[in-house]
Amino acid sequence: MRKRGLALGVGVAVALYVTAPQNLDPEFLLDPTTGSLLAGDATRGALAFAAAGCGSCHGAEDTQALAGGNAFVSDFGTFYAPNISSDADHGIGGWTVYEIANAMLAGVSPNGAHYYPAFPYTTYSKMTPQDAVDIIAHLRALPADATPSRDHDVGFPFNIRRSLGGWKFLFASDDWIVTEVPSPEHERGRYLVEALGHCAECHTPRNLLGGLKTDQWLRGAPNPSGDGTIPSIHPDDLGWSAQDIAIYLDSGFTPDFDTVGGEMVNVVENTSKLPDSDRAAIAAYLVVLD
């Protein structure tokens, strides 16, 4: 009896531990030499913001203000991107730098709740501290918008945010998928694809619990919206040269002069803002995938 009680107690403790939010280490945002908060640069931040595609989800179609409202259909319900403009009441104007970074990189809200992984913090967790503070500086320089955020349409049990802790425990990982990066360009490409660009969130299939099947990395997936599929961008299937990929990410033209469509149009809008060297880096990463 006592043994079982103990086992039960341990089980509950483990469950509470894995479901409790793990906050971002506050030291992460500090300058190691001075010990004070890293200074963010809004101009650099605009590029990191484009690479991370924040505006594709949070931006309003007409005004481009970060008023939220875009819907994301998944097997677990429909999520709506919230207002992340600098409005103090309806946006995140009142949040500290740490609170925003904790949301972006650890998926934890200011009042300690887990965010749903429709917000791709599981990949942003690999973001550099400098990019994080730069993005925040950029966010703060954008106009406020007073549109209220919309509640998600998510049923039981997925409406219990606490249970997301188990999901994070199972699927969130700080490890890179591609472990060998022979050149700085390849390493930059890995950072842009695996951390900021969250390409795999669309291009990699998911298991029943919504975790990415990393053994089928970037090999294409059903479109969660129910319309068609998202193509494989693995070199075995795509067969494009590095230059073809870089041109597509800049202009939206495929090698046979069809054009980009669907959700990828927003991605190309973002990648077209990056320097040539970044598009070349993404392409260099993709063409040598195993």
Binding site: T229, P231, V260, G262, V265
Partner: peptide, 17 residues
């Protein structure tokens, strides 16, 4: 020119492979 193709393909074309 390319932007007008993708503006339509964005809303009205399915990808299925």
């Amino acid at each position: 020119l390319g932007g007008t193709c993708s503006a339509c393909h964005r809303e009205y074309r399915i990808r299925d492979n």
